[in-house]
Amino acid sequence: MPSDAPQAVRDICERCVGRIGAPISALREVAATLGAIEQAHMETVADVFNLSVAEVRGIVSFYSDLRTEPAGRRHIRLCQAEACQAVGARELTAAAQEKLGIALGETAADGSVSLEAVYCLGLCASGPSAMVDGRPLARATIKALFA
């Protein structure tokens, strides 16, 4: 982590002050910008929004985007919800797990790749759906996932 991270967190928080749901927006941006939320970040958020660190930790543990562990360099999210199940999401997930040697929800030991579940990307008429490094993928195949 770069040494100026706490200041970056404070800047993010101060940009959010006055907006609705501000602590959540700030934490979401911290996770997106710095890759993961650390204890020191939570303390800064608590300080800016006049919350206890426990309250901030409660928020962080509630929302899945507020990650405390960084994702792998390649971030693969596979939809596990019903519309994708109906067109082979379970089989696709099994194939991806086998290819990468990690289970859904895990990051490879060398940090090269994460495989995560997502519950609906709204591409349900053309499943199975996936998101690879933020890019949505419809009618996903194992080949397209690793293209």
Binding site: R19, I20, G21, A22, R28, F62, D65, L66
Partner: peptide
């Protein structure tokens, strides 16, 4: 008009959970 982006919680589609979330809390 203000736009709020959620942070990944299906339950926040329930209206009272959504309101808690908009108040910056656990949903």
């Amino acid at each position: 008009i203000e736009l709020f982006i959620g942070a990944g919680a299906y339950i926040c589609g329930e209206e009272t959970s959504l309101l808690e979330s908009l108040e910056g809390k656990r949903g």
